[in-house]
Structures are given as structure tokens and as C-alpha cells.
Amino acid sequence: MDLLGPIHDILVIFLGSVLILGGLGVVLLTNLIYSAFSLGWVLFCISLFYISSNSYFVAAAQLLIYVGAINVLIIFAVMFISGSEYSNDSHLWTIGDGVTSVVCTSIFFSLITTIPDTSWYGIIWTTRSNQIIEQDLISNVQQIGIHLSTNFYLPFELISIILLISLIGAITMARQ
């Protein structure tokens, strides 16, 4: 276990730098489709972060929902923009840009101040999942599956009804 610490640090630094580069690409690239693909790359790197911190189910969910679903929707939405709107008027500083930058920097600094103050190991779920990992390496996702299909049976079926409602609603809205 002595060697694993530095490898973990190197991996986190490498992933973090790739993530920051991807985020800068999302903001700075002028072509919208390139920034949409860059956003997909950033979300993929976040899922690798989840794998390196032992939460495999969250990584799979991140890959399926954010990279698979939301990013595909964003890319489709970019594809519906007509080609003439790729004009180079991105150098203008509008009011919306100012408001967005103020909000983003305030969120950034509030996160920086709150993350060191929070005692993450005091949360019950974190310690309990650590105990599960120590007991059996595979059972983390299995525990979610067992709980989902026995204790939370009714919400599990309600999810599929919600998906059905959203599918029918989306089709009827898109047909108009």
C-alpha cells in the first residue's frame, strides 16, 4: 500500500489538469460543437475521478446519465442551431456575461471555504460504505441493487412510470 499513495496523487493531478483544460475548452472555444464535445470530455474525466475514489456505481451513473444522456441532448441542441449563428461576435462583453462570471466566482469561493470546514468522515453513509468495502469488494453495487428491489420496490416502479410520462410528454411536445 506504500506505492499506491503516490500513484493516486499522480493520477489525481493528471486528471485534474486534463479536467481544467477541458473546462477552459468549453468556455473558450468559439465553435459551439467543439465546446459541447469538450463538455463531454470533462464529464468523462469526472467519472474517472469517481472510479479512483472507490464509488463505481456513481461513476457508471455519471457515464450513463451525464455523458450518455445530457451531453447527447446538448450536442443535438447545438446541431439545431443554424450555421449562420456561428458568428465571431464572442468578444463583446454583455451584461449576461458579467452576471454569470460573478455568480460562478462566488460559487467557486464559497465551495473553497466550505469544503475544508466540512467533516466528511462524520457523515454516516461514508463510514458505512467504507465498512462495506472492507467486508466485501463487490458488494457495493450489489447492496444498492438489493435495497432497490426489496425495500424501495415501489419507488423503483414509480421511476419507470415517470420515465414513461416524460417519454410521452416529450414526443407530444416535439410533434407540435
Binding site: L64, G68, L73, I138, I144, G145, L148, S160, L163
Partner: peptide, 19 residues
């Protein structure tokens, strides 16, 4: 949209398939 709905469904089928 149809793809996204079944993609979200897969997330919930994955822990069931694992167990």
C-alpha cells in the same frame, strides 16, 4: 429523447443486474 429515457432506465437496471 427516446434514447435518453432508456439510458436513464439502464442506470437503475445496472445494480439489479449486479445482484
Amino acid at each position: 429523447l427516446v434514447f435518453v429515457v432508456f439510458d436513464v432506465e439502464t442506470v437503475f437496471l445496472y445494480p439489479w443486474a449486479m445482484s
